[in-house]
Simulated assay, not measured.
Amino acid sequence: MPHATAATPSSVHRPRWWTELPLIAVVYGLYSVGRLLVREDIPAAVEHGLAILRLEKALHLNAEHPLNRLLTDHPALGIPADFAYASLHYLVTPAVLVWMFRRRTAAYRAARTWLMTSTLLGLIGFTLMPTCPPRLLDAHHGFVDTMAQYSAYGWWGAGASAPRGLSGMTNQYAAMPSLHVGWALWCGVLLWRHGRHPLVRAAGVAYPLITVLVVMGTANHYFLDAVAGAAVIAAGALLTRPFMRIADGVKDRIRSVSARTPVAVTPVGSTIVGDGCKTSAGERIPGRRTSSADSSDAGTDTAAEVSDDAPAAAR
Rank of each mutant, 00 (worst) to 15 (best):
H48R: 05
H48C: 03
G49C: 04
L50D: 09
A51M: 09
I52A: 02
L53Y: 04
L55E: 03
L55T: 04
L55W: 06
E56Q: 04
E56I: 01
E56T: 01
E56F: 03
K57V: 02
K57Y: 06
A58I: 08
L59M: 09
L59E: 06
H60C: 08
H60M: 10
L61S: 02
L61I: 01
N62T: 02
N62L: 02
A63V: 13
E64V: 09
E64A: 09
H65V: 08
H65S: 09
P66C: 11
P66F: 14
P66Y: 14
P66E: 11
P66L: 11
L71Y: 11
T72R: 05
T72M: 03
D73P: 12
H74L: 05
H74K: 05
H74A: 03
P75K: 02
P75D: 03
P75G: 02
A76M: 08
A76V: 08
G78R: 00
G78H: 00
I79S: 03
I79R: 05
P80E: 13
A81C: 09
D82T: 13
F83G: 07
F83M: 10
F83Q: 09
F83S: 07
F83I: 07
A84K: 12
A84D: 10
Y85A: 13
Y85C: 09
A86K: 12
A86L: 13
S87G: 10
L88F: 15
H89K: 13
H89S: 09
Y90R: 15
Y90Q: 14
Y90N: 15
L91C: 12
V92F: 14
V92G: 13
T93S: 10
P94M: 14
A95H: 14
V96F: 12
V96L: 12
V96A: 10
L97M: 13
L97T: 10
V98Y: 15
V98S: 12
V98A: 15
V98W: 15
W99P: 11
W99E: 12
W99Y: 14
M100T: 12
F101I: 07
R103Q: 11
R103H: 12
R103L: 08
R104V: 06
T105W: 01
T105G: 04
A107W: 06
Y108I: 00
A110E: 02
A111I: 01
